[in-house]
């Protein structure tokens, strides 16, 4: 396995002190530490310490939802073409960070660097696939409805608002992007809880997103204990929908119950992340608006 530490010390004198990255949260376009000041050790599957990640508190969830809510109006109003371009841009930037991400994925998932590179490539492709849907989804999910009168009648998919996302625990990058991209490309803003045991690629993805023209607050990524944060997100009255795909089966019933407090849209699906995606996740976080318009002559 290629380790960043060895390669760094090889290219520099042994006396040099490494400058290690602080893994932080991503809220409203900024990278704060947790307001609680806490962090937790992230271990590789073999028990080796990889890094300390910020351990978000419920107040960080609150702040992330505030940031997500503030970003809704602008992101919703962005043209479909623009949303697509922004997501393509994320894919471009991701490609450039490929080595770093492959290293982190390999360490997190204890896979070979080759397998990790394939996962990064699949992630970029997944983003491109979803980016392409930005200006095509409305044609597929929307309709022109026949009505008995001199009116046009259209049904159009509209974003739901702020979407809470529990990212998959196992697939630290491909799975994460597969749940993050669909709500974003359909015009929602997201608050993502990264998988508890493998959060480091999520933080690096946040750094990619921060430099890819995604407006601040559209994507917010938290790292920490799922058991502590997921119920807060599920019960939050200003969150409009939640994706429970990353929650363990036994926890889903309780999270569903909490989400019912304000009748959130709840989506959960145990996808094979390597399989080709479908429209299911795009359809999950939109609501249909139907408008009538008089036929001009």
């Amino acid at each position: 396995m290629v380790s960043p530490r060895t390669s760094t010390s090889e290219s520099h004198p042994a006396s040099r002190l490494e400058v290690r990255k602080t893994y932080k949260l991503f809220i409203g376009g900024a990278f704060p530490r947790s307001e609680s000041g806490r962090s937790y050790p992230v271990l590789a599957p073999d028990g080796r310490l990889l890094a300390n990640a910020a351990r978000a508190s419920r107040k960080d969830v609150r702040d992330a939802v505030v940031a997500g809510r503030a970003a809704v109006a602008r992101w919703k109003a962005a043209t479909a073409y623009n949303k697509g371009q922004v997501l393509y841009r994320v894919a471009e930037m991701l490609e450039g960070h490929g080595d770093q991400l492959a290293r982190e994925v390999a360490e997190a998932e204890a896979s070979t660097i080759r397998a990790a590179r394939r996962a990064v490539a699949a992630t970029v492709d997944r983003l491109v696939w979803y980016a392409g849907w930005a200006d095509k989804f409305a044609q597929v999910a929307g309709s022109a409805n026949p009505v008995a009168g001199p009116f046009f009648n259209f049904s159009l998919p509209e974003p739901t608002g702020v979407v809470g996302v529990l990212a998959p625990r196992a697939s630290s990058l491909l799975g994460l992007v597969s749940v993050l991209a669909p709500p974003v490309v359909t015009g929602n803003t997201v608050v993502v809880l990264a998988g508890e045991e493998r959060p480091l690629p999520a933080v690096t993805l946040a750094e990619v997103i921060a430099t890819a023209d995604v407006p601040a607050g559209v994507v917010n990524i938290l790292t920490g204990r799922s058991a502590e944060l997921a119920p807060v997100l599920a019960a939050h009255m200003d969150v409009n929908a939640i994706d429970l795909s990353g929650a363990e089966q036994p926890d889903r019933a309780e999270l569903n119950r909490l989400a019912a407090g304000n009748v959130k849209r709840v989506f959960a699906s145990d996808d094979d992340w390597t399989a080709p995606p479908t429209l299911a996740r795009l359809r999950a976080f939109v609501e249909t608006k139907t408008v009538w318009h008089t036929v001009g002559c």
Binding site: R58, V61, R62, V65, R69, V232, A235, H236, M237, D238, V239, L258, G261, N262
Partner: peptide, 9 residues
């Protein structure tokens, strides 16, 4: 209630 609130309500 223990749950963060939203202005919609």
């Amino acid at each position: 209630s223990g749950a963060y609130q939203g202005p919609d309500y």
